[in-house]
Design a protein around this nucleic acid. Structure first.
Length: 576
DNA sequence: ATAGGGTTAG
């Protein structure tokens, strides 16, 4: 069939349209297979023209199930078209044409995009009735559906019913775990999967694992996956080497990220460069990030939306205000990239950190897009840094207006007042929080030791080795005092309830994690700690001095970036 | 030969 390969080779729309008129004139369209090939090309990505393919479809005299399946699937890729896709499914069920397992698969995908648990569950019931459940494609799609709607247990149930889950089913299970807050269990699945002899991990498995390692700051696991990648010849996959770069960056090892980047010279794309730039950015190497950006262009790769996000965040983390402004301008003028919410967010952060709060506020007001809660929160963070209570109050009002105010926002406001020494206002916010029943979720830090991730909370009382840990921490503080550490309890508060008497013995979770790390590793080992909020000034000082007194490198991953301590200095240049 | 799995500021 020459005509089918001709259709398949069509890469551009005008070309395909030309072919369309030719097909209409010829008798080829009487052949359903040819028509199907044409419709698929038109409706599915990369062309993905839904309205045109809808018209072509309705002009066809006798549609069959394959045509419907293609059309339903084409509509299942995006949320805004998924409802229409489901309507086609409905139409098919009432048309007298019998559906098959692939129909159900596409319909379930639509349900996932529509985010409708009830409709999806009904479809699942129908699938049960029609006896398609043994179809592995359909089963994995169902798993993905439940996973997307945060019904992890239902996804697991479908998985358990598969007699011999293939590699994709395992991958969906892994992604289900990471999506539903069970990242550590996701890591464990890698070994379980390797033990089950039915399949071996593929490139996507590695990609998912590396993502999980990155989010848990789990370097040892990450290295294990890296070894697997090398042993199984998956390093040649661009997606895999890109996620290795991201993993090493997220684990605070830019050097290793760069190593992978260097070795992937033959297969670098925008994603590789963007990953590298953002890795440099959050490790405090703003200048290198900017340099990498220029280097990338000289190698003929043009930057994309996310590249600018990474670049602007590099500028904001390193305080490169002029460069940031310049690139923000150039982005629109020279590269035709329309600033999105991420770009604006970076600029607000950049200006805000640098103390240009009014300009940051002005930028938000001037945007053509609606500011989201995160944007306001970024500005609130800047108000906290510069102790700007007046603007802070206005920002809170905006958050309230969006009905998006969270406990953390009140804590920020409270810290603003507290750093201004306005104790009346502090009490006022405390009272307001109490009255409205707003409570903070406890902050936590994690540290990885021998491939196991340990989690600590502020003033942890649950840890089995808490006695030892607290003793160790007491000793460390003694030592650090000699090195010049002075505890600064005043302006930082992460627990709204902690009142004066408790403060003396109140320890942030990162200090507990560090004590545990020193207790459990030989001298000289780098401590790698991840913290879910931002590190406070006092802890920052603590680690700076600790790195000199104990002669240890400490890498802290914060909510925003990395703080790399060594020999009494921090790579982030104490820029707040 | 209509196929199921993954990214984005703080």
């Amino acid at each position: 069939m020459k005509i089918i390969s001709l259709i398949k080779s069509c890469k551009h729309k005008p070309h395909l349209l030309q072919l369309h008129s030719f097909l209409l004139r010829s008798s080829h369209f009487h052949n359903p297979t040819v028509f199907l090939a044409f419709l698929s090309r038109l409706a599915l990505p990369p062309l993905h023209d839904l309205s045109y393919s809808g018209r072509v479809f309705s002009a066809f005299p006798d549609p069959n199930v394959s045509l419907y399946n293609t059309l339903i699937r084409a509509h299942s890729f995006r949320r805004d078209s998924s409802r229409r896709g489901f309507q086609f499914y409905h139409e098919l069920l009432h048309s007298g044409i019998s559906s098959n397992a692939l129909t159900a698969t596409a319909a379930v995908k639509c349900c996932a995009k529509m985010e409708s648990l009830s409709i999806g569950t009904q479809v699942h019931g129908r699938i049960w009735r029609d006896g398609y459940l043994s179809d592995s494609l359909l089963q994995t799609t169902l798993m993905d559906f439940y996973s997307a709607l945060e019904k992890g247990n239902d996804a697991c149930k479908v998985f358990d019913e598969m007699p011999e889950p293939d590699v994709v089913a395992w991958n969906v299970l892994i992604s289900c775990y990471t999506r539903n807050g069970r990242t550590r269990d996701a890591l464990a699945l890698f070994d379980v999967m390797r033990r089950s002899d039915s399949c071996i991990p593929d490139d996507v498995t590695c990609l998912l694992m590396l993502q999980a390692c990155g989010s848990l700051n789990s370097l040892e696991w990450g290295e294990k996956v890296h070894t697997f990648v090398l042993e199984h010849g998956l390093i040649g996959s661009r997606r895999v080497s890109n996620s290795l770069i991201t993993m090493y960056s997220r684990c605070g090892c830019v050097e290793k990220a760069f190593e992978v980047f260097r070795h992937s010279a033959d297969r670098r794309d925008v994603v590789s460069w963007t990953a590298m730039i953002s890795g440099l950015a959050c490790s405090g190497y703003g200048r290198d990030a900017v340099e990498a950006f220029e280097q990338m262009q000289s190698e003929g790769v043009s930057p994309g939306e996310q590249t600018f996000t990474a670049l602007l965040s590099a500028c904001s983390h390193s305080g490169l205000v002029d460069e940031g402004r310049m690139y923000f301008q150039a982005m629109g003028h020279d590269f035709g990239v329309v600033p999105n919410v991420h770009h604006y967010g970076c600029m607000v952060d950049l200006l805000g950190r640098a103390g240009m709060l009014d300009e940051a506020y002005g930028l938000i007001r001037s945007m053509r897009i609606k500011p989201d809660a995160t944007m306001w929160r970024t500005l609130l963070g800047a108000c906290r840094i510069h102790g700007h209570a007046g603007l802070g109050e206005r920002v809170i009002e905006h958050l309230v207006e969006l009905k998006a105010q969270e406990a953390g926002d009140y804590v920020l406001l409270l810290n603003i007042y507290s750093s201004c020494g306005d104790s009346d206002k502090v009490m006022e916010v405390r009272k307001a929080m109490k009255d409205r029943g707003i409570h903070t979720t406890p902050a936590s830090s994690t540290i990885e030791l021998k491939g196991k991730v340990h989690e600590f909370f502020a003033d942890d009382v649950l840890h089995p080795r808490k006695r030892e840990i607290y003793e160790m921490l007491g000793e460390i503080i003694q030592q650090l005092r000699i090195g010049g550490y002075v505890a600064e309890i005043s302006s930082e508060m992460q627990r709204a309830e902690s009142e004066s008497e408790a403060c003396v013995l109140s320890y942030h979770s990162e200090k507990l994690a560090a004590a545990f790390g020193i207790l459990s590793t030989p001298p000289g080992t780098t401590l790698r700690i991840a913290k879910d909020l931002r590190i406070c000034v006092d802890c920052h000082n603590f680690f700076k001095i600790l790195s000199a007194v104990y002669n240890r490198r400490v890498v802290i991953r914060d909510r925003a970036r990395f703080h790399r301590f060594g020999d009494g200095v921090c790579s982030c240049n104490d820029y707040w």
